[in-house]
């Protein structure tokens, strides 16, 4: 049954591209861009059946970070999640990532001999930010609008959803943030379980 649904979903995703797009791709037949190239349009359609299958089963590749950021070292050095690095977490939906300048507040003088820190300094000299890859986050089909700030105000620990980051080097997805996980916590904390709390 599930397989049948999957195939139907995949076909729908492929077959029902927007009308404008199908016309333009017909016009360029024979000189299709390589699969890795960025498509000229943004669409919710899956690009391949495999993509659709991965999304359906919730299979995601692990994030590949440009620099192996050691969370454990930073936390062991008395840095908490919310000061400096993810400080937007108390203010709005997104926890936020620190820019290179924030890294360099400390690393101007701390551990400047390490090659990874020198890499960070190099990023700053070039004036580019580090392209960190997203570790958590919901699939677009989940239609979830998550807001960090009210969870922090409700005294939910970061570790509840993100695991014990103090023991991780590069952040890993150790907690499966499925709907059951959210709903259970909302029940115990007597938060709203209305659909529109998260899905809109």
């Amino acid at each position: 049954m599930r397989i049948a649904v999957l195939i139907a979903v995949a076909m729908a995703g492929l077959a029902c591209g927007p009308p404008g797009q199908s016309v333009s791709s017909r016009g360029q037949a024979g000189m299709l861009p390589p699969r890795e190239a960025t498509p000229p349009t943004f669409t919710t359609a899956h690009r391949t059946v495999a993509d659709a299958a991965r999304d359906f089963f919730g299979i995601r590749r692990d994030a590949q970070q440009p620099i192996p950021f050691p969370h454990n070292v930073h936390i062991a050095n008395k840095l908490t999640c919310t000061d400096y690095c993810h400080e937007a977490v108390t203010k709005g939906p997104r926890a936020g990532l620190p820019g290179v300048k924030t890294c360099m507040i400390c690393h101007e003088s701390v551990a400047t001999d390490r090659p990874t820190v020198q890499q960070v300094a190099d990023y700053q000299n070039r004036g580019v930010d580090i392209s960190w890859q997203r570790v958590y986050g919901y699939a677009p089909e989940a239609h979830v609008r998550f807001n960090h700030a009210p969870h922090i105000r409700a005294k939910v620990e970061c570790a509840t959803c993100h695991g014990n980051v103090a023991q991780q080097t590069v952040a890993e997805r150790v907690v499966d943030l499925n709907m059951g996980f959210c709903v259970n916590c909302h029940r115990t904390k007597q938060a709203s379980n209305d659909c529109l709390t998260c899905h809109f």
Binding site: A12, G13, C16, G17, P18, P19, G20, Q21, T38, P39, P40, T41, F42, T43, T44, A45, P93, P140, E141, H143, R145, H199, F200
Partner: peptide
């Protein structure tokens, strides 16, 4: 939604992040 919605890049950057982008069906 008869189709998957699409926006010519970079118009997708103006999408409201607080609202879902609904897919086909």
């Amino acid at each position: 939604n008869f189709f998957n919605p699409s926006w010519d890049k970079p118009l997708h950057l103006q999408l409201n992040p607080d609202v879902s982008v609904r897919e086909v069906g």
